[in-house]
């Protein structure tokens, strides 16, 4: 590792140490009558469990057409910007209700830092994205950080204006390290979709991860 890289890592770590928070806005997915179940400043717990099978703190319920749905905290943190006036009211889709101020954990900080070192595949257009079926299967079988993608192979399916376009991978062979998008949600143009790591970089990346592990408190 060059000293330049070393410096960079240190800068980044310092920056995250200064402000180790990320704010998540919680908005209603659709219309309905909302009932808030948390108070301002309350600490909430996110999804847990090995398979993310245990739900977090109940944030609010939304009743639409006789169906009460419960919405849980996706992540640990503290409730801020709670709009209490909406409690018991009818709301439109995508109405912001509250924010969760989340303190980055060691792993998340690592992921954030990794974004700067991995080759990030950004969304070429604002569209919905899906993993290409073959790649999806590969990841299902082998798991993330194991599946290798070669140039020319199908990477993603971009779905926009009712048309599906296959995106082929270009560039050096790499390992799919992180997936940033969720299927069936619109990704804005330029947002990260995938983090790809060239196989020979794997060692450096794991070294980096170790460094942060040691230094992050």
């Amino acid at each position: 590792m060059t000293s330049k890289q070393q410096m960079k890592i240190e800068d980044i770590i310092a920056e995250y140490k200064r402000n180790p928070y990320q704010v998540f806005t919680i908005s209603t997915p659709h219309t309905g009558i909302v009932s808030l179940k948390v108070t301002k400043g309350q600490k909430v717990q996110g999804t847990t469990g090995k398979w993310l099978e245990r739900k977090g703190t109940l944030l609010y319920t939304l009743v639409r057409q006789g169906n009460e749905k419960r919405f849980y905290a996706p992540i640990d943190g503290e409730i801020t910007d709670l709009d209490e006036s909406l409690d018991g009211q009818f709301v439109e889709a995508k109405t912001p209700l509250m924010s969760i101020k989340h303190k980055l954990s060691k792993e998340e900080a690592i992921n954030k830092v990794l974004e700067k070192f991995l080759e990030i595949y950004n969304a070429p257009e604002t569209a919905k994205y899906y993993l290409a079926p073959e790649l999806y299967q590969k990841i299902e079988q082998k798991g993330l950080k194991k599946a290798l993608i070669n140039p020319g192979e199908e990477l993603l399916i971009m779905s926009r204006m009712k048309r599906d376009v296959v995106l082929n991978y270009e560039g050096r062979p790499g390992i799919i390290y992180v997936i940033y998008f969720k299927p069936n949600t619109t990704v804005n143009q330029g947002d990260p979709l995938l983090g790809i790591c060239p196989p020979e970089q794997l060692e450096f990346i794991s070294h980096l991860v170790k460094r942060i592990y040691l230094e992050w408190e």
């Binding site: 639409r64 057409q65 006789g66 169906n67 299927p183 069936n184």
Partner: peptide, 20 residues
């Protein structure tokens, strides 16, 4: 016989709409 909707348990994964 009920005029209500129900959520599909896979809604989050597959984007299923509530079903009447």
């Amino acid at each position: 016989k009920v005029d209500k909707t129900i959520s599909c348990p896979n809604a989050e994964r597959y984007g299923c709409y509530d079903i009447w």
